[in-house]
């Protein structure tokens, strides 16, 4: 089978919340194909973060099932623990979880908890540091002496070193400057190309989603509102805007053009597509450029 994650009829309600309040997750169905990059978008509070915490058994669904790698993660204690290592979760601002004396030890924390041999841990730490683009010299330093961007990458390496089947990134570029953002995005692309891992990317930045994702899941008020390829999702740009979500800048420009009365399609999300579309329109209107 090719789906690495399958959730069905997933419901979740935070304990101690008012009975009248809507649940955090409601009847969510989700399949993630092996090797794909799935972007999860939605407002703050739409259930994105709650959803991904179901995938590595941090939160237990009130109803419904979660299958990772073909196994029900809530079957027994062992499967719960395995789920932690099958799905690596990289939280928002992960640099706030660094604690060890050296960067190397911090990256090794996950692999050590997995009970791996010293040699294997060492190999994984090196590999992870290489993947995130951390200089070898930094490994012996204290994580608290690194720059902001380096800290972020060291923390991400800590999750990667567990070599999970699926890695979830929750807003990996939040709060970074343009250079730092580009570093992280390059790292995501490299990680994908070299390890063929499945990646889930929670993001508010639609430009990044348009650039990186294969498919997109739109969360809205605890429900999976849309699920499809990037083209399919951004073709529904008007609906997304109604939900109060942003769409890529080029998509917004084309929406404005549509409102002004130009005959352009709604699902344009890259600069190249935009150019192509305008050239086609120019050719149709039959005028030389």
């Amino acid at each position: 089978m090719s789906s690495v994650i399958e959730c069905d009829k997933l419901c979740f309600r935070y304990p101690n919340t008012a009975k009248t309040a809507p649940p955090a997750l409601e009847q969510v169905k989700l399949t993630v194909e092996r090797g794909e990059l799935l972007a999860i978008i939605g407002h703050t509070g739409s259930g994105k973060s709650t959803l991904v915490q179901q995938l590595n058994a941090l939160l237990k669904p009130t109803q419904g099932t979660v299958f990772v790698d073909g196994k029900n993660i809530w079957e027994n204690k062992k499967t719960v623990r395995e789920a932690r290592f099958l799905v690596g979760l990289c939280f928002q601002y992960p640099e706030y979880q660094l604690f060890e004396e050296t960067v190397e030890k911090d990256i090794a924390f996950g692999p050590k908890n997995m009970g791996l041999e010293a040699d294997e841990i060492k190999r994984r730490v090196c590999r992870a540091a290489e993947l995130v683009g951390l200089d070898k010299l930094l490994l012996k330093k204290s994580p608290f002496d690194l720059s902001g961007g380096e800290k972020r990458r060291a923390a991400i390496a800590g999750v990667m070193a567990m070599e999970p089947q699926v890695i979830v990134f929750d807003e990996p570029t939040a709060g970074l400057d343009p250079r730092g953002k580009e570093h992280i995005l390059q790292m995501l692309l490299r990680c994908r190309a070299e390890t063929k891992r499945t990646i889930l990317l929670i993001s508010h930045n639609m430009e990044d989603v348009a650039r990186l994702a294969d498919r997109v899941l739109v969360m809205h008020q605890g429900k999976a509102a849309m699920h499809g390829t990037v083209e399919q999702i951004f073709a529904r740009a008007e609906e997304l805007t109604e939900m109060g979500l942003t769409v890529p800048c080029v998509t917004r420009i084309f929406l404005a053009l549509r409102r002004m009365g130009l005959a352009v399609p709604p699902g344009i999300f890259t600069l190249e597509q935009g150019l192509r579309e305008l050239l086609r329109l120019a050719a149709e209107s039959g005028c030389a450029l």
Binding site: G88, Y96, G110, V159
Partner: peptide, 16 residues
């Protein structure tokens, strides 16, 4: 809130 978040993060790295 912060404690909660850090605990979740470390549990995700296999902390027991």
């Amino acid at each position: 809130e912060e404690t909660d978040r850090i605990m979740s993060a470390q549990k995700s790295r296999g902390s027991n």
